[in-house]
């Protein structure tokens, strides 16, 4: 089991919560993998017995981040996408989606609702807004020519089992 992707062990020991479960997926930037990635995320989260709405939110957010990596990051060329799913304490799931594509020059601008660099492609410019609204936190780290890393977390509600 590879563990070396956790950055700076000394620092992460202080700031990062304990990881209870972790799964990492690497796949090529094919649009057919958009459905695959969100199905995997949903299956991973199913361990936490989420509500239908929570699963739907997770699937949507993952779909947005993976689609962005494919259409913007790699601009429909072949590249590698890495999705890491982590279960943290207190029913929190942390999802990281990474590409090594073109990167984003101005992340703040990119996150603005309706902002898109590809209006001809019938994009809505609502991808980051969806991720932000459907998840609890969204962090975007990007550099031109280096790629983009999107990290999202969501805490699942704790409902009695009988409700589902």
């Amino acid at each position: 089991m590879e563990k070396n992707h956790r950055t700076e062990p000394a620092e992460s020991a202080r700031t990062e919560p304990r990881v209870l479960n972790e799964c990492r997926l690497t796949f090529p930037s094919l649009s057919a993998n958009e459905g695959y990635a969100r199905a995997c995320a949903a299956a991973f989260c199913a361990q936490l017995d989420p509500t239908a709405t929570e699963i739907s939110d997770i699937k949507c957010a993952v779909s947005e981040a993976v689609t962005n990596a494919i259409v913007h990051g790699y601009r429909d060329t072949a590249g590698e996408i890495i999705m890491t799913l982590r279960q943290l304490p207190d029913r929190v799931v942390k999802i990281e989606i990474r590409d090594k594509g073109c990167g984003i020059a101005n992340v703040e601008e990119a996150r603005t609702p309706l902002y898109t660099t590809d209006p001809a492609g019938e994009r809505s410019g609502m991808g980051f807004t969806v991720m932000e609204s459907f998840m609890d936190t969204l962090r975007v780290v990007s550099a031109p020519g280096r790629g983009t890393k999107v990290t999202m977390t969501k805490k699942f509600t704790c409902l009695p089992r009988v409700r589902r």
């Binding site: 969100r38 949507c60 779909s63 947005e64 019938e122 809505s124 969806v130």
Partner: peptide, 13 residues
Amino acid sequence: NFMDSAGLGLILG
């Protein structure tokens, strides 16, 4: 059963 922002683009288009 599933729609993301690509669906918004499709509808607006």
